[in-house]
Design a protein around this nucleic acid. Structure first.
Lengths: 222, 222
DNA sequence: TATAATTTGTGAATGAATTCACATACTTTG
DNA sequence: CAAAGTATGTGAATTCATTCACAAATTATA
């Protein structure tokens, strides 16, 4: 079975777990492992071995029975599946709190997400050097996105203006948008839009503390 | 059925959707809606009405048949369920890129997550005023967490040191941790740990662009 | 080269989450 | 006040995701 041209729709959770496997494989590579079993991968991510094998099986058979998966090779394959074996050109719109942090976030670079452009509407920021990148005027958004062959745009502007920005981005021909503004944005059907809601996990902790989701009385047995 | 003392385990997705409903209800409140139907809520979040009703039904019956849900009342109920009707004392460890952004992130304040303490190990930062909060020495972590009655700790330190920090935090009696470091942390079973992986959504977009998950040929029909 | 020990890959079984569909209860209208 | 319209709440049906369980393939051992 080839990696390309997937027939089945792959679930979001599988994709997310692939990211996890990728990270573990990077660590295993540094620890000089040649092979790794689904059991070991599962242990490190608190999953079941069957889950790991099933996830991988959607994309092909990468392992050797009796031995496990070749660490380097599997890492490459997952990189290829997730598109981490290439460089993506990314633009960040909004150099406030969040936008600023994202521009300096090394992990993105490491994964091949290269931030090439940064936009703001604040005259004091435009033209200034922000962590190695000159801040562009947001009025040139559409044009600059096109000229620089940007693949993905990250939105880090206030919720109130996010939709206007998105409309421009779409006009600029962008097909993938990551939105940090706490608002539901409208995009045409051919555009991929993902929302990053920084409060969600805090809210989950809040909920957990109140309702104590943990099963009690299992201490000592594990 | 009372809101407190849930029998059934509530799924993570239901909790996450409650956050979404909460946000929509805040907007509807500003738009002076008195009531809202599951249909309208669903439309705004791209869900099905049945999903909305089922989610809410886990916690009680808040609506009126023939009319819908009372906006203000439902918002309060969800706030209560998620613990957004109180103030949580939060500490942020690590005032780098991410930590710094989180300290200034207004949305947390708005939801009742008040950042009371900020820690770092950099002598140049310790004692300085960071967005209104004096940066504490990380060597006093355990003690200060206790003395200030911190409920939730956000970890924004490099992956290499995150586990040491967590161990201290746990010693400080903290029961809820939100981790931004790209590493799998170990905590005792009674501690809630959630991971925020900023790359996950970018990776999903990358995957989507390559594999084009969108069903084609549906243009014009919707 | 046979035997024992591993470990994958995957249909089948199970479990969980979502959607359906409808009785029920309320609102609105005339 | 009755009839029509609306929208909830929830078991049942369905769809989707996870886990089981085992044949098949390979390695390790003697």
């Amino acid at each position: 079975m080839a990696t390309e041209n997937l027939k089945k729709k792959i679930s979001e959770s599988t994709i997310h777990r692939l990211s996890l496997y990728y990270r573990i494989l990077s660590i295993l590579e540094k620890e000089n492992y040649d092979t790794v079993s689904s059991k070991e991968l599962a242990k490190r991510e608190k999953l079941t071995p069957a889950q790991v094998r099933k996830d991988l099986s959607f994309f092909g058979s990468f392992g050797t029975r009796g031995l496990g998966y070749p660490v380097g090779e599997l890492k490459k394959r997952i990189a290829r599946i997730l598109g981490l074996d290439r460089v993506w050109s990314v633009a960040v719109v909004g150099v406030g709190n969040i936008g600023s942090a994202l521009v300096g976030y090394k992990e993105f670079q490491r994964q091949g997400f290269h931030i090439k452009l940064v936009f703001d509407n604040d005259q004091r920021k435009i033209g200034s050097n922000h962590k190695g990148i000159i801040v562009s005027d947001i009025r040139n958004l559409e044009q600059e996105l096109r000229e620089n062959g940007i693949d993905i745009v990250i939105i880090a502007v206030p919720a109130t203006v996010a939709q206007y920005i998105v409309d421009d981005i779409v006009k600029g021909g962008i097909k993938a948008i990551l939105n940090f503004a706490p608002v539901n944005l409208k995009v045409p059907p051919e555009v991929y839009l993902r929302n990053e809601n920084m409060s969600v996990e805090l809210e989950y902790l809040s909920f957990a503390l109140i309702n104590d989701q943990k099963k009690r009385g299992t201490k000592g047995i594990g």
